[in-house]
Nucleic acid binder design. Structure first.
Lengths: 350, 350
DNA sequence: ATTAGCACTCTGACCGAGTGAGTGCTAACA
DNA sequence: TGTTAGCACTCACTCGGTCAGAGTGCTAAT
């Protein structure tokens, strides 16, 4: 059941050729381009065997062979070698990321841009998930007679705030006291935890006015927590796929685009993927049957975890893309390691 | 040079028919469907005249006529009548907007969703421009030894904040004093004004440590102002156009999609458009030659101004879309009128 | 001024032949 | 027994030609 050395060589040759030219590859062209020391007839026989084993398919009798998902999987797992990035790409990455080093979200967006520029595919980046983030403090600030700001600060400096209009009047003292009480109650607990407990805990006071204020603030508090848990999705290079032959039919192009119309669904799917560089090919992506998806994770200060990814047809340069993503996520994680004396700013989401 | 009553009738009939069926319309079908009391031959003669005047075009000799941009312009300016929304659509709008009434950005996003759902076209919504917003107060808050939060609050409750890491240590008193000084210096001035002055004004203190703190904070302050000036763009229904015959060719579809790849450019273009319901047709949109674009403005508390819009082929139901947008923007402006006793929240951008 | 009639034009669908790429099989060969 | 040359066969694609249908533009009659 294992493949012979020669079969592997042939399979690799077919994959290389097909990835490059997007056209079914015949025995003759393999024999000519790759010096395997055998005739086209022999290659034909091997190809026939490979097809039987499910590594190749046949659009029609008189066409060449096309690698199957299974072939790409084999290639990704066993055959492909790490590629070195070109000096040009490395420079591009370093410069672009350094330029926006101070602005967290901008850096992440630039990472997605770089991915799509270099691979000519569609890419995305997610800001880090904050479920592990714990509450550092909560502050209520006055705006006008009826309007206040609720601000939640996480332990990594993540900030989210909501402006809310109260039905009842308030006092500065009330705000201060409630801020303090809420901070005491929730400090150190994760956002997830506080939100999921769903119990609006009594922050403990027996002043009637304060209880009224608390009741007015709570719905906004929960909404703010939810907001803080949301990650941002940046997509880039969606139109790149129009240049690829697999999307030359309107239907395919539409299907592809529609995947990203439901941003929330897509974000959830991506968040569920394992850490590190993960490749899923064709059928392995339930809903995105004829795409391949490569994701990788970066870290913020060694803790928070965000994701970047590339989406394209199954026919893609897996070796180059995975190497690129490894380089890029390392670079990102490095950027986001908060060293002392650094004036990095803008670590706040939406 | 003016068009006769009959010519107007014929032109209107052609536009109706073409907008409905997306196919060149011939004299015979006009004569049959619209009871104008004349024969196809007469209509042919009029059509020929209309073509000479630039209101119609001819894909080829033996095809029917197609309205030109000029014809649509005439239609929009003089011919079309306001349409009443269906009860179903009204209900849909009211329900959907009411559901997210508390969350500012969500409401705006829903407005864009509604637009694309009802029109089956591509739509967008912009959060209000904040150049007129004035600074209400500025607050600096501690996170850890080196990290602080800078928060700017506008007079309409708009909040933007940045987490920044300082090179130098700070004290609570320092933060409080600087907050107070900055507020005094900038209160009441517009964001634009403060940002454009570009002079980092001395907020007035002679304590050395405070000056150092001020210097550390200023770059972040400017960046926060910039951030606060940014508007958010929500796009919806981009894939709707795949169902339209004018985008059945990949090239057209790609061109359309690429318009929105440069979000910043698009946002700027949209912000430049006049207030109220504005229709631009085909050539009138320099870069979007074969699209029509309809935008409308909504108000927040009668002051801040945001935009929503619909983009589609020149062949669109101008009457229905403009009526819909009028209804929708009225509804939005109404929602955003901050009445007393209302606990509307979440009036904060990015 | 309007209309009927008719010739003319152009598109799009359909058809059939020819071409070329590539396979699969068979028989010969090392 | 694995490899190879040779050859028949298959299938998609292209090209030219034909045909039907829709619609115009012109002319002559009303």
């Amino acid at each position: 059941m294992d493949l012979s050395e020669r079969q592997l060589q042939i399979l690799q040759a077919i994959i290389n050729d097909y990835v490059e030219n997007a056209e079914p590859v015949g025995s003759r062209s393999i024999a000519k381009k790759y010096d395997l020391g055998v005739s086209p007839a022999t290659i034909r026989n091997e190809m026939s065997d490979l097809e039987e084993m499910g590594y190749l398919t046949h659009p029609h009798t008189s066409a060449g062979r096309v690698p199957s998902d299974k072939a790409y999987r084999l290639y990704v797992n066993n055959l492909m070698k790490k590629k070195n990035l070109s000096a040009k790409d490395k420079r591009l990455i370093n410069e672009r990321l350094a330029a926006s080093r101070d602005e967290f979200d901008a850096t992440i967006r630039h990472a997605a841009e770089l991915l799509s520029e270099i691979t000519h595919l569609t890419s995305f980046a997610l800001t880090p998930a904050t479920n592990e983030e714990t509450i550092s403090f909560i502050r209520l600030l006055p705006v006008d007679e009826r309007t206040i700001i609720l601000m939640i600060v996480g332990d990594s400096g993540n900030v989210t705030n909501t402006t809310m209009r109260l039905k009842v009047p308030y006092t500065q003292e009330g705000l201060d006291l409630l801020s303090k009480n809420m901070t005491v109650t929730y400090k150190g607990r994760t956002l997830d935890d506080v939100l999921k407990s769903h119990i609006i805990e009594d922050v403990g006071t027996d002043i009637a006015a304060l209880n009224a204020l608390e009741a007015g603030v709570m719905p906004g508090f929960l909404r703010t927590l939810e907001d803080m848990l949301n990650v941002n999705l940046y997509m880039e290079g969606m139109t790149n796929i129009f240049n690829l032959p697999e999307y030359s039919s309107i239907d395919r192009a539409r299907d592809f685009m529609q995947l990203f119309a439901q941003k929330d669904w897509f974000t959830q799917k991506m968040l569920q993927r394992a850490d590190g560089v993960v490749v899923t090919i064709g059928d392995e992506n339930a809903k995105m049957k004829d795409c391949s998806l490569i994701t990788a994770t970066y870290h913020v200060d060694g803790k928070l975890v965000g994701k970047i990814g590339v989406i394209g047809p199954t026919r893609m340069k897996y070796d180059e893309v995975t190497s690129l993503m490894e380089y890029l996520t390392n670079n990102l994680s490095e950027s986001f390691r908060l060293t002392d004396g650094d004036d990095k700013t803008e670590r706040n989401n939406k």
